[in-house]
Design a protein around this nucleic acid. Structure first.
Lengths: 210, 210
DNA sequence: GCGTGTCGATCGATCGATCGATCGGAACTG
DNA sequence: CAGTTCCGATCGATCGATCGATCGACACGC
């Protein structure tokens, strides 16, 4: 028998990604997890505690991977490409969890929201720094770097909305097309290099073994 | 005294944009609209009927304006610019309504969802046609036109997430920066022309008088 | 080896509150 | 008076959450 807490968490992610946090009750969640509604409270604290835990985990994982991806040793173009690919692949491989992370912020009370928003801000700071450094070096030429960051993040978030592995796109194509679009949006005309493609493949392997 | 139905609709948009459809009850809605919960049902049918009506109105308005914006008489670059500006300005001027339209689809039952999804597909078809025509003429060079359409729409949807008129960006700057980014993403390097800026100003005037 | 006590895990039953929705009738309008 | 608008009262259902009770597993003293 699988670990009960993991089953509860997986069921919550599935339900909340589909119907939203307020759109499914705890009895529905209990049935999906195969336990009684009372047992839920032995593991999750309140319903909102579970939501915050799911969001915290998703953001911490993304943040950890992103920090490794923007090591200062890398070049400007590689740093932004790595962030785009990591973000897009995460949203494509774990669409349900990322949908909960991205769209259920408003269901958090102010205490929980402060922590989660801080994590998200930390993550977005990595993007802003990568963009700003590209602007300083002259490689990126966005008319407004902050708007470019917001536009890029929204564009990449959207993958969790529409991507399905059943479609014509492979994960590699998905990630590389978004890398190209992101660089083009920032004013870089050159096509992605072979090293970017190779690191993209490494990332895809990482996503599935983790 | 303002029209009761309009007050109800405005209150629903405000509440549902903030807390979500399932996140606010009809008593809360009634209080926000200044009527009793029973009175709501004199105007709105069921709660979900009201949601569908709000989404239908928003999409029909957007569709009508977009159809006028893509008259075949215009050039390729102008068509896509007009779609981007119209979409961005709508999301900036009416963020609450567009948030409900964009993010409450999952709260609709299948019967209502079919109608709303059909309207949204009609709207997105206008974007796809504008992009495809640009590809045929050789002006646009996206590696994958369908992915480019999805990326552009998500990028422009995001405006309703983060834009605030209190910030440093004017509506005109917001719309023009997104026009530039959209064209750059599609592979167009040239800066936006004076006619695009002029039409953007016309659109802003239209948004506020309508 | 065997009784005893403690523990986490789990349950059915149930709490007060709120949910969406409905009713008959009062209040207003023309 | 007829029609429209609106509301207080209330419906059954469901909400998130909690209760006491039970179960098996494990540790301890003798």
């Amino acid at each position: 028998m699988a670990d009960t807490e993991a089953r509860i968490r997986a069921a919550a992610i599935r339900l909340w990604a589909e119907r939203g946090f307020h759109g499914s009750g705890i009895r529905e969640l209990a049935e999906a997890a195969g336990v009684s509604s009372a047992t839920l409270y032995h593991y999750m604290g309140t319903k909102e505690d579970l939501l915050a835990a799911i969001m915290r985990d998703g953001l911490l994982r993304l943040l950890e991977l992103a920090r490794a991806a923007v090591k200062p040793a890398q070049g400007t173009e590689e740093r932004l490409s790595a962030l785009v690919q990591l973000h897009v692949l995460t949203h494509a491989v774990r669409p349900e969890q990322t949908r909960v992370v991205d769209w259920e912020m408003r269901s958090l009370s102010t205490e929980h929201a402060a922590e989660i928003v801080a994590l998200r801000d930390e993550y977005e700071l990595l993007w802003q720094e990568a963009i700003d450094e590209g602007c300083r070096s002259g490689l990126f030429r966005p008319a407004h770097p902050r708007v470019a960051r917001l536009a890029l993040l929204e564009m990449c978030n959207g993958v969790a909305h529409w991507y399905t592995p059943d479609g014509p796109l492979t994960l590699e194509e998905l990630a590389l097309r978004h890398t190209e679009m992101a660089l083009a949006l920032l004013g870089v005309a050159v096509p992605v290099g072979v090293d970017v493609v190779r690191r993209c493949r490494d990332l895809i392997t990482l996503m599935w073994t983790d």
